[in-house]
């Protein structure tokens, strides 16, 4: 379990992480989602004791990282950049890391095999592709058979096969009761990997909820409605917080009303509806909306259309 309380990191006049509090529970995959520069990596480096928080604290299993007796056996991490001297072979890199905790060579060979690095283990990391570098980072993270695994952008640079592999690995580790915390800026990846989602934007937590709740919850409910009296329906549905888009002559997209209410209003006003489809927001849309809120400081999204693409950038 990872617990952050009021975690803050200020670089000069830039607040990278702003009084962030969250808990990452064991036994499930927790995704850490946010645009580039939102503070994901900084937060993870603070968890690993590499960056000192300006204020606040973070503990892993109740203890600050540096206070653990055997840190590598407690927390395994893959942080964003290649944390390897590229002049060394993959095997020797893992061997040197294992030596600090008397982790046997057998385990080094195991993680090499697990991550599919057997063919290149005796080669210098210099020649590794980004994907192979990621695999080596994951191998290092698993070296101590840790209870908590922190992976920063683990699918970066992996081929599709590797992406599936990381996904299965994360789920497998969580199913074993471990704490799995992985960051990504790829919403689609999170949608299929994570059980729980912590969304960060501009150094602040925007959402911290089960993934299903984020998809359904904060996004307003939307429905596709087909009717032969679109103008009349638009008039009777109009109200506070409701926005309607005409997509085709007889097709409306209604945001802010749930399908049951739309049907009731239509029935009461004797307007025939021949299609009423609840639209589930994709995680992508939910995320865009969340980060748009953060960026624009809670201005209302009135268009009802999926949030513009530029939101959440930077």
């Amino acid at each position: 379990m990872i617990e952050a309380k009021g975690l803050t990191k200020i670089y000069g006049d830039k607040t990278a992480v702003d009084a962030v509090s969250f808990t990452v529970e064991a036994g499930r995959v927790t995704g850490f989602l946010g645009p580039n520069g939102a503070g994901k990596s900084t937060t993870m480096r603070m968890i690993m004791g590499l960056d000192r928080p300006t204020s606040g604290s973070v503990t892993v299993n109740g203890v600050p990282f540096a206070k653990h007796v055997a840190p590598l056996r407690e927390i395994g991490s893959l942080l964003d950049a290649k944390a390897v001297h590229t002049g060394r072979t993959a095997y020797n890199h893992l061997l040197a890391m294992a030596a600090t905790h008397s982790i046997p060579r057998k385990r080094v060979n195991e993680v090499i095999e697990m991550t599919g690095l057997s063919d290149v283990a005796k080669k210098k990391v210099k020649g590794f592709s980004l994907g192979m570098g990621q695999r080596l980072g994951i191998a290092a993270a698993l070296l101590g058979d840790p209870q908590t695994v922190i992976l920063d952008e683990p699918v970066n640079g992996l081929d599709p096969e590797g992406v599936v592999w990381v996904r299965n690995l994360a789920k497998y580790l969580a199913a074993e009761g471990r704490t799995v915390f992985l960051s990504s800026h790829l919403m689609s990846e999170m949608a299929v990997t994570a059980d729980h989602l912590i969304v960060i934007g501009r150094g602040r937590i925007i959402a911290d909820a089960p993934i299903q709740q984020i998809i359904n919850g904060k996004g307003q409910s939307r429905a596709r409605v087909r009717t032969d009296q679109p103008e009349h329906l638009m008039n009777i549905l109009a109200g506070d917080g409701v926005s309607i888009q005409v997509q085709e002559p007889e097709l409306l997209e209604v945001t802010g009303l749930d399908p049951r209410r739309i049907a009731r209003i239509a029935l009461e006003n004797r307007v025939m509806i021949y299609e009423l489809t609840p639209l589930q927001a994709s995680l992508e849309e939910a995320y865009m909306e969340l980060t748009k809120d953060e960026v624009e400081y809670h201005s209302l999204i009135t268009s009802g259309a999926p949030a513009p693409v530029q939101a959440g950038g930077n």
């Binding site: 055997a70 056996r73 905790h101």
Partner: peptide, 9 residues
């Protein structure tokens, strides 16, 4: 818990 999970550095 920190105790009993194997040797540290």
């Amino acid at each position: 818990t920190a105790a009993g999970i194997g040797p540290g550095p």
